[in-house]
Design a protein around this nucleic acid. Sequence first.
RNA 1: GCCUCGGUAGCUCAGUCGGAUAGAGCGACCCCCUCCUAAGGGGUAGGCCAGCGGUUCGAUUCCGCUCCGGGGCACCA
Length: 558
Amino acid sequence: MTPNELALAIRISLVELAADGTLPVSTDELPTNIVVDRSKNPEHGDYATNAAMQLAKAAKMPPRAIAEALAAKLVSTPGIAKADVAGPGFLNITIDAAAQGAIAADVVVAGAAYGRGTSMQGQRFNVEFISANPTGPLHLGHTRWAAVGDALAAVLAAAGAQVDREFYVNDRGNQMELFGASIRAAALGLPIPEDGYKGSYIADLAEEVVQAQPTILEISDPVDQQIAFREAGYALQLAQQQETLASFGTNFDTWYSERDLHTSGGVDRALDKLREQGHVYEADGAVWLRTTDFDDDKDRVLIKADGSLTYFASDCAYYIDKRVRGFDTCLYLLGADHHGYVNRLRAVAACAGDDPSVSIEILIGQMVKTMRDGQEVKLSKRAGEIVALTDLIDEVGVDAARYTLIRYPADSPLTLDLGLLVKRSNDNPVYYVQYAHARISSVLRNAEAVGIDWRHSDIAFDPALLVDEREGDLLRLLAEFPRVIATAAELREPHRVARYLEQLGAGYHRFYDGCRVLPRGDEPLEAIHISRLWLCAATRQTLFNGLTLLGVSAPTKM
RNA sequence: GCCUCGGUAGCUCAGUCGGAUAGAGCGACCCCCUCCUAAGGGGUAGGCCAGCGGUUCGAUUCCGCUCCGGGGCACCA
């Protein structure tokens, strides 16, 4: 019996109590969401609910009396062994051993689908993240969302939502010109422009461009030549970013070009839309959007006095374009340095006639500070000091990098110690979780080696045998997984999945330490062995499903 | 100044519909391998959940203020 099934049983009992008059409340007054918590203390049974205390006010009855009535109903429910009233009105519930153990079989049968739910069915999300300028390699500043954004998208999808991962390519504007000028200067041996890109990768790019396209040096017009360098460099950088992210296990459904947004008329359509909604005005020779109608500090310029479009105009067009493409909710995963954009983006949605509380959501990822040997590693693309994402992958590997970034909530600042991460030690919990998966894999291999086919054995899986305290803990943990995914999706917090996997790993290691799975040398094969193998298989499946959501591999050997 | 994120064990951090005795890893100390991977398990020590008020049966959690730290407040991209 899972917590969700238990919650349903409690709900049904309450409805019955309200119907027969034991509880003087209408069914409308019953809590729709019954809270069922795992008990921390084993003396308090398997699960606890505070439903009686929640109802006390509406029913004008002492919580303990309500709990008593509820307990009497619940004990006649199949699968529930015991229901005790405790403290101010908690109800401690013990699940029947067989009903508890049956979860192991449920998980094995569900397989890769175990944990997936339907709580977000019918919702279409556009999850946009990273969106780095194509003017340089991806660096550590981009990695947090590369890992967390991807995991968040996976979690939303696991909760039943339809999710697109999108990367916005800022391939227009002044930065691109500076980029082109910088490469050209490097190729011709000229000084890099004052505010140009000074990283050493620029020289490499220049060399690569010239090698692939020697005639570029013969272009006499400096403007044309700069454009040629810009375009060649752009293509190389974009390809490199795509390759880097693919090697990091982050794959986008859409790479959306800002240029396309303009050439397709998206900007004009957006401006028309905003005008229709009545939030556009002219002043000081510029065209403004009155975002102050919706909580922004100041209005924003769409078209500058010189007639050129602002970057903000592109932002508006991009948002409106996403909505036209049919997304219910546009998620923007931004760095803390973009936090000033939150209000204006929300205002854009409102100016476009949308309800910002539904159609736009902006998540701010706090800074990742990187340390190496106790020294802070500074990231500055202009100054040329870059710790590239590819370096991180090379140094610590995809699994450790992704996992470490994902296991902390994105809205808390994070300090990554590269020196520590490089050590493949226990300090990184990814190994702990992966080890649990590998350990189970090994047990199952050994079972096979001695000829035990636990799935099709003559000796049947008997859920009632899994009564050891460590087996019960592990079963309760397994039952928790669907709720973890649903909550992680709801709160946009994929780190909850990682933390859960650590608990599950710990639960397995304890079980492994205290409960012998395979028969020793001369022992006969018995039902307890088979049942424990099912429990092992269920745990492995859940670890696998969870790690897969996070984009971390689940090795069968380490 | 305004906005925003944080302040929980020596260190790094978990802990949302407000619940029973506040958790984990690392570090310290003590135990456990004739047995499926010791990359593991068990135990001890370590806390005024930054501070002060409020809401109530009950607050680390919700609200207000104060203090301390990170980040942000362009007709830049």
